[in-house]
Structures are given as C-alpha cells and as structure tokens.
C-alpha cells in the first residue's frame, strides 16, 4: 500500500460513511432475497444493491481516488451507468421467464395482457 498524500479527515469520513451505507443496503437486499415469501416480491430487493449500493460505493471510490491523486478521478461512475443499462435487461427477462413458467405450471399469476404471440420489444 503506497501512500503518497495524507487524505483530509472529512474525505476519509465521507468515504467510510458511503462504504458502510452501500454495504448495509446490499445486506438488506440479501436479507430480502432470503426472507420474502413470493418470487415477484423477491425481484425487488436486488435493486437495492444495483442502485443505491453501487452509487454509494462508486461515489466513495471517486472521492477517495480524487483525494489521493489531488485531482478528479471520475471513472468509477461508469459502473452505475453500466449497471443501469444491464440490470433492467436481465430483470425484465427474468420477470417474463417467471411469468411464463408460472403460467405453464398453472400457478396464480395474471393472464397475458393481450392475446397471441410474443411481444417484439
């Protein structure tokens, strides 16, 4: 661990608080994943880690490296941007797969919202 400059205290405090906040939100998401009863309810908690968890950790990373290098180091914000593009795709596909499979096995889910075929979107 090579330490070039001494970080100001407020920067360390902000980084520490952001890291703990992000990880606690991720933990709550995991608790929800285990505790909630219904599959569609369980689809919601993972968004905790991919939104506010990732924002907090990236912001902590930006603050820490900017302080360390004495200038803006912004590349960590690419992670939330990447997540906000990729996570909806998998979530959407999983929701549709779950609806499809539950309909096939005759569980209690809403009917297809209109007749015929796959939607092309």
């Amino acid at each position: 661990m090579i330490q070039t400059v001494e970080l100001p205290f407020w920067l360390e405090l902000a980084t520490a608080v952001l890291l703990l906040t992000g990880s606690l939100f991720a933990l709550v998401g995991a608790i929800g994943l285990v505790r909630l009863k219904d599959y569609f309810q369980r689809m919601h908690p993972p968004a905790l880690a991919s939104t506010i968890g990732a924002w907090c950790v990236s912001l902590a990373s930006i603050l820490y490296f900017s302080g360390l290098k004495q200038g803006p180091v912004l590349h960590a914000w690419l992670i939330p941007i990447l997540l906000s593009i990729t996570v909806p795709v998998t979530t959407l596909l999983l929701a549709r797969a779950a609806l499809f499979r539950k309909r096939m096995s005759g569980e209690q889910v809403p009917d297809e919202v209109s007749s015929g075929g796959d939607r092309g979107n």
Binding site: M1, I2, Q3, T15, L19, G22, S23, A26, G29, A30, L33, Y39, R42, M43, P46, A49, S50, G53, A54, V57, S58, A60, S61, Y64, F65, L68, A76, I79, L83, V87, T90, L94, A97, A98, R101
Partner: peptide
C-alpha cells in the same frame, strides 16, 4: 425453490462481487 430464484440470486451475487472489487480497489489504492 424455482430455477428463476436461483438465477436471480446468482445475479445478485455477481453485483455484490463487483462492489467488493471496488471496495478492494480503495483498500489497496
């Protein structure tokens, strides 16, 4: 119990692993 539950949890695992990498990046500067 269902396959989609497992995929959802795996998806969550990789997001957590990615966040841990960022934290490790801060730890080792």
């Amino acid at each position: 119990p269902s396959a989609q539950d497992r995929v959802l949890a795996l998806d969550y695992l990789y997001i957590l692993a990615m966040l841990m990498m960022l934290v490790l990046g801060i730890r080792y500067a």
